[in-house]
Design a protein around this nucleic acid. Structure first.
Lengths: 340, 340
DNA sequence: TTTAGCACCCATTAGCCTTAAGTGCTAATA
DNA sequence: TATTAGCACTTAAGGCTAATGGGTGCTAAA
C-alpha cells in the first residue's frame, strides 16, 4: 500500500482556525457559506477544502448534509498550531492582582480564592488538588488540654501549615503526663521532615514513652494518630464553580447536566481530573481528559507555601482555549515569583 | 356578607391525605378515579369532595380538566394535621449510629459528616450554618515563628475550636518580642469568654504592650487581627448534595436546574435558607422558605461542642415529609444527649 | 484551480388529528 | 339526602405529514 502524507496548506490551516473559532463562538455546525468572507473564496471552494480537512480527521459532520464541527483532533491541531496567544483584559488582570497582593492568606485559602477568581474570569469550573511538599519540616507539636479527658493535638510545619485534632483519652491516663510527653516529642522531632516523622516516632519516641508512662500504648496512640492524621490527610481538594457548567449551551439536556454535576460532586471522580503531570500548561481534550469525553481540562502545577499540586480548569471542548491559557500563564508567572 | 366557616370532615381529610401522599409518590396530578379504592366511593363523589378542597385552597388544578395537585396550603395542612410519624429503616438508623459513635471528630467535621449521611438517607440537599456559642472561653493563644518575618498565630477555645492565621511582620520587629508578648497575652486572657476578648485586648492588653515594645502598634495589630479573624469568621457553612436536586423529576427543565444549583452555590443565597429560629423542627413550604418558591426547607437547631447553628434539609415541595422529620427527630435526640 | 449550478439530504418546525385522562353537571338511584 | 352513572366538554401529549432552510457533493463551465 502506498502511504501518502498529506500536508495541510496555509489556506486549510486558516480554514480550520476559522471553523474552530467560529464554532467556539456560535456553538452550531459551521457551513461553507459562512466562511466565504473570511477565506475570500466561494463556498464551493471551501466545501472542497472542508472535504480534505474532514478526510484528515480534523472536522466532522453530524449528518450527511450538515455543517462541520471540529473533532478532538481538530481542537488539538488548533491548540498546538493555530491558536494565538491572548492578553487578559485589564479588568481580569486586576482581579488576579488583588489576590496576589494579599500576603496574609493561608495556602489553602489562597488557592481557593484563586479558583474563585479563575472561575469568575473564565466562566468554567476550576479545581485544585494539593498536598504538602517534602520541604515541610515539623515546626511544633502542641497538646492543649481541654478538660480531664479531652485534649486538642496541634501540628504545625515550618511552612505554616497547621492541623488540629481532638482526642478523648481514657480516664486512667493523667493529662499532665500527656502534656509532659508532648514536650519531649516536640523537642525531639522539631526539624524533622514530615516524610520521616512516622518512622522516628516509632523507633525513637516510642521507647522513651514506654519508659516514662505506664499506659504508654494509649499515650503513644495519641501522637501516632495526630501525626498519622496529618500525614495521611494531606490532600486538599477544592472544586469551585460547578454550576458554571450549566451556562454552556452544549450541556442543555438534563441527563447530560446530571451526569456532569454529579461527577463533579464525587471526589473520587474529581481526583481523576487533577493528576500531577510535569508539563507546564497541559491541555486534555475530550477523551484525553480521563474524566469525561465531553469536556476539556487544562492543567498547571503549582508550588506555594509548602504545598504543591495542580490547578485545573474544566469546560466544554469548545473552550475558549486562548483565554484559559492566558489566565494560567499569568498565574504561573505569579507562582514562580512567589515560590520558594 | 355572611361568613361561613367550612370545616373539613373526616372523609375530606382522608382524601387530602391521599392526594398529597399520592402526589409525593407519583409526581403527577391525581385524578378522581385513582382514589376510588382508597376512599371507598365513586369517582363522582370524590370529584365533589375535591371541589370542596379546591374551594378551600388545599388543592389546585393546572388546567380546567386536569387532575389535582396539592397547594402550599394543602401541604401545610398535611404536615400539621394529617402526616403520620414514620420510623427510620434499620439501615438508615445504622448509618446515623456510626456517626454518633465517633468521638474524635472536630465539630465541623462531625456536622459535615452528618450532612452527608442526611443527604444520603433522604436524597435531598442538606445545609448547615454554625457559629461558636457564647460558652466558648479562650483556652490558649500561641505564636509559632516560622522564620524571621513569618509567624502563625493560633487561637484555641476550651471547647476545642482552633483557628490559625499566618502573618508577615515588618523586618524591624523582633520575632522573639512577639513571642514574649504572646505569653503575656496568653496568661492574661485565658479563661476569657470570646465575647469580651476584643474588649479586654483593647483596654487591658494594649497598654501593657505599649510599655514593653517600641513598635507596639504593629505587634498589637497581630493580636488584634488574630482575634478579630477568629471572632468575625466564626460562621461555618456547609452545603452537601447539591446534585440531589437533579434527581427530582420536578426539576426537569434546564432553566429550573440552573436557577436552583446556582442559588445553592451562592453563599449569600444559602444564608437566607439557614436562619436561626427557635422552634424544634420547623417546615417552610415554598414561598415560606424565603429562598425559592419551588422548594421546601426543613430546619432544626443544634448545639454541639461549642458550636451552635441550624441544619436544614432542602428538597421539592412534594418532599417526603414524614421521612425527613423522622431523620431530624433522631438527630435531635442524639444532639440533646450529647449537648453541653 | 475556482466557481456556478443543481440535485439531494435531513433536522426542525408547524399544523393537524387522535388519544387518554381528567373535569363539571345533571339526572337517576339507594 | 347523599351517592353515583352518564355525558359533554377540555386539555396535554403523541404521532403523522408537509414545508422549510441550511447544508452537502458533484459536474461542468470559466
Amino acid at each position: 500500500m502506498l502511504k501518502v502524507v498529506i500536508e495541510v496548506d496555509e489556506r486549510q490551516k486558516n480554514l480550520l482556525k476559522e471553523i474552530v473559532e467560529s464554532y467556539i463562538k456560535e456553538v452550531k455546525p459551521i457551513g461553507s457559506k459562512h466562511l466565504c468572507d473570511k477565506i475570500h473564496c466561494s463556498s464551493a471552494t471551501i466545501r472542497n477544502e472542508m472535504a480534505v480537512l474532514e478526510h484528515l480527521g480534523y472536522i466532522e459532520k453530524n449528518h450527511i448534509s450538515s455543517g462541520r464541527v471540529p473533532s478532538e483532533a481538530g481542537y488539538r491541531y488548533y491548540v498546538e498550531n493555530l491558536m494565538e496567544p491572548k492578553e487578559l483584559s485589564g479588568e481580569d488582570m486586576l482581579k488576579l492582582q488583588t489576590l496576589f497582593s494579599n500576603k496574609n492568606l493561608t495556602v489553602s485559602d489562597a488557592i481557593e480564592k484563586c479558583l474563585e477568581i479563575i472561575s469568575d474570569i473564565t466562566n468554567y469550573t476550576s479545581i485544585s488538588l494539593g498536598e504538602y511538599s517534602d520541604e515541610n519540616v515539623l515546626r511544633q507539636i502542641n497538646i492543649i488540654p481541654l478538660d480531664e479527658t479531652k485534649l486538642v493535638a496541634l501540628v504545625c510545619t515550618d511552612k505554616g501549615i497547621v492541623k488540629n485534632k481532638q482526642f478523648s483519652i481514657p480516664p486512667d491516663i493523667n493529662m499532665m503526663e500527656v502534656v509532659k510527653i508532648s514536650e519531649i516529642v516536640n523537642k525531639m522531632l522539631v526539624g524533622t521532615p514530615l516524610s520521616v516523622v512516622a518512622e522516628r516516632l516509632e523507633f525513637d519516641i516510642k521507647p522513651i514513652i514506654s519508659k516514662q508512662v505506664e499506659q504508654y500504648e494509649a499515650v503513644y496512640g495519641i501522637f501516632y494518630d495526630a501525626f498519622h492524621d496529618f500525614i495521611s490527610n494531606n490532600e486538599n481538594i477544592h472544586v469551585v464553580g460547578k454550576s458554571k457548567m450549566l451556562n454552556q449551551p452544549e450541556y442543555s439536556d438534563t441527563a447530560e447536566i446530571k451526569r456532569l454535576i454529579s461527577k463533579l460532586e464525587d471526589e473520587s471522580e474529581v481526583r481523576k481530573i487533577v493528576k500531577h503531570d510535569n508539563r507546564d500548561i497541559s491541555i486534555y481534550i475530550g477523551s484525553e481528559s480521563n474524566f469525561d469525553d465531553n469536556v476539556t481540562v487544562v492543567k498547571t502545577n503549582y508550588s506555594l507555601g509548602g504545598e504543591e499540586g495542580t490547578i485545573a480548569i474544566i469546560g466544554p471542548k469548545r473552550m475558549e482555549y486562548d483565554r484559559v491559557v492566558a489566565v494560567l500563564n499569568i498565574l504561573n508567572k505569579w507562582l514562580e515569583g512567589v515560590g520558594d
